[in-house]
Design a binder for these strands. Structure first.
Lengths: 177, 177
DNA sequence: GCGGACATGTAAGAAGTTACATGATTAG
DNA sequence: CTAATCATGTAACTTCTTACATGTCCGC
């Protein structure tokens, strides 16, 4: 058991508000979409396993077989444990992998690829900024605070990606002369 | 067939120099370690599948059953195709996931976590800089050029991560007052 | 000869994706 | 009554990780 981040994403989303699998999917698709995407299939499976292991409980049952889960003390403890233990996981980046092998393209194609990457980063940046504007920052809860931190990370990342792609594009066009 | 990046990493590593699975593992563990890590088990399996599909050939056999693979025309074409098609894959970040749920820690623990993250980014940055200094940049080949671009991306990423972690840490300590 | 590097593979399991399958409730 | 939403699950498949298994060659 080394990774298991999906498990902790589910636990984290249950901290303040109990939820059904259906509710959780909505949270995954909004707040966690850019951080830890998950499929419906995964979420329901993980909920069953977590309940089985006593990390969450079925607190209430509703219409259509709805099961509303809450975090148990053991679940909260597990989340805290995971947060504190630091394990820098390997990061895979297919974007960077492409950069590595860009040499098999001619200069024009490579520059084109980088230009598109810059555009994409700019678009992502704009989308995130819009999300930031649309959110209600009047609340002062702990989740709001940390959501802000994660959002700022995203903004900085996209800014960096755009600048880098522009720089890299200029490197290529100047080397092609 | 949407992802398949391991396949393209293998193809890319075979572009200029033929190699055995054993050779490729060394390349994965050095040049591609921070971009697309792979295990021995994966590499051998993928080589067999690629040879089966005609994207690579066994060009020579050596001692100890060594099989030296070369890229075929079809393999190079497939690599080019993959490079040009743009698909921004979902990125998972357990580090960011932790930030999201940092609210369940007290301010001291959270600040501690961010301080460690800043240190880690600084260390990674230093390691990459050292790698940069140790490499022979006198060669002017296409792989060298693009390796430089990828390296610069890494340097910028780590710099950004360090700055962000420091900023986030200050946000938390000031909010805790 | 013997240890370390070279060299290739298989097996079992965890994690993730896509598609299928089914049905209940509610708002209009 | 009927369409959209709510709601849960299973099956098949791919990808990745960890561990096991085996054997050869080369330098000293």
């Amino acid at each position: 058991m080394v990774g298991m981040s999906l498990r902790h994403a589910v636990l984290g989303l249950l901290v303040d508000q109990p939820a059904s699998g259906y509710d959780l999917m909505k949270r995954f698709n909004t707040s966690l979409a850019n951080v830890w995407p998950a499929t419906q299939s995964q979420v329901y499976g993980e909920l069953a396993r977590l309940a089985d292991g006593g990390l969450i409980d079925v607190a209430a049952e509703g219409p259509r077989g709805r099961k509303e889960y809450t975090l148990t003390d053991a679940g909260l403890a597990e989340l805290r444990r995971w947060l504190i233990e630091d394990k820098p996981e390997p990061r895979r980046s297919s974007a960077l992998l492409r950069v590595f092998f860009m040499g098999v393209l001619d200069a024009e194609q490579a520059a084109d690829y980088l230009a598109k990457a810059a555009e994409q980063a700019a678009a992502d940046h704009a989308a995130l900024r819009q999300l930031q504007d649309s959110l209600d920052w009047t609340e002062q809860g702990p989740l709001t605070t940390n959501g802000r931190l994660a959002l700022e990370y995203g903004l900085r990342l996209y800014a960096m990606q755009e600048e880098w792609a522009q720089w890299a594009s200029s490197q290529i066009t100047s080397a092609a002369e």
